Amino acid sequence: MKNTEIEYLINLRADKRLCLIEYLIKQKDKSLDQSRAAILSRAIENVELGTTNWDVLYTKLQALKQPEGEDVPQFTSWQAKLNPKDKENYDKICKEMRQDLIEKGIIKRTLRAQLMVVLLLYRYLDALEREEVMAAQKIEKEKRADKIISELELPVAQMGAILIEMLLTDKDSPALKEINQIMVQWLCRTRQKSGQEV
């Protein structure tokens, strides 16, 4: 039986902004499917209705510049197919975007399809960049925590208490196996020094 789902085709003239945004998304988006339809679908999924300040994104978009020394591919047309579910969500997003931009005085009445797609994709790029920053901050925080832990010295009494707690609560822990090996090595060394049999 044939699939009767109708796909909706978005067909636009591309400008430099659209070329640049697509180029930057493809650098930051780790998904395997880098087709325009897949990127647009993820951009749509990424929007939570009622939470985006489209006017703020529009203002940020004006400051978008091509990275120095990078050759951004230029194209004159841009096409992507939307499945019915994405098309329904896309329509809701565009309605909200238009209303927000009219209320903030950025547009008068109409919102061109090209600007809708540019803003939607720019919002996705912005989300990817924020995720990248958060991931880098998390790694840095973990490094700092690891450094603090590695430099931390526990008092002997606390070491003993922790060892007893580990033995009682997590006796199959790999850490206990390491501690066991360290204790065996220490025992061997001290007995050899004192001339005792191991």
Rank of each mutant, 00 (worst) to 15 (best):
A135Y: 06
I149N: 06
A63D: 15
I164L: 14
E140P: 09
P73T: 11
L57R: 02
M166P: 04
L20N: 09
V47W: 00
Y23I: 06
K87D: 07
K143D: 08
R42C: 02
N89H: 10
A38C: 08
D71K: 13
S150H: 06
E151F: 00
G69V: 01
F75R: 08
A145L: 11
Q192M: 12
I164T: 11
V198D: 09
V156N: 09
L152V: 00
I10H: 02
D71G: 02
V47K: 02
L12M: 06
A135K: 13
I93V: 12
L154E: 04
Y124H: 06
S35R: 11
E7V: 08
L152K: 11
I10V: 15
P73D: 07
I106C: 14
I148L: 15
A127Y: 09
A43V: 01
K28E: 14
S31G: 10
R98F: 00
I107K: 12
R17K: 15
W186N: 14
A161S: 12
Q74F: 12
E132H: 06
D55I: 06
D33G: 11
K138Y: 08
A161C: 05
F75V: 05
I148Q: 14
R109C: 06
Q137R: 13
D172F: 10
A175T: 13
W78Q: 02
L12A: 03
K87A: 06
I44W: 04
R191E: 13
R98N: 08
L24N: 08
Q196K: 12
Q62D: 05
V56M: 07
Q192H: 04
S41T: 04
Y124P: 09
K92M: 04
E165F: 13
S31L: 01
K108E: 15
K16E: 15
E70T: 12
C188G: 10
R42H: 00
I107V: 13
R189T: 08
A127D: 06
V117P: 05
Y23A: 05
R42S: 08
M97L: 10
E142W: 00
E153C: 05
D15Y: 06
G69Q: 10
Y122W: 02
A63I: 02
Q99H: 10
R189I: 03
G69S: 03
I179R: 07
K108N: 14
E197K: 05
R36I: 02
R98H: 11
L101C: 01
G160M: 13
S41A: 14
I182P: 04
D86Y: 03
V184D: 11
I179K: 05
Y90I: 03
I6Q: 15
E70A: 01
Y90M: 04
L128M: 08
P73W: 05
L101S: 04
K85W: 01
E197C: 05
L167P: 03
I139Y: 03
L115D: 13
N89P: 00
E178P: 00
P84W: 00
A14M: 07
Q34D: 13
E22H: 09
I44F: 07
Q114H: 08
T76F: 06
R130G: 03
D172G: 10
N83C: 07
D126N: 07
Q181K: 15
D126M: 01
L168M: 14
I25Q: 11
K26I: 04
I149Y: 12
S194A: 15
E129S: 13
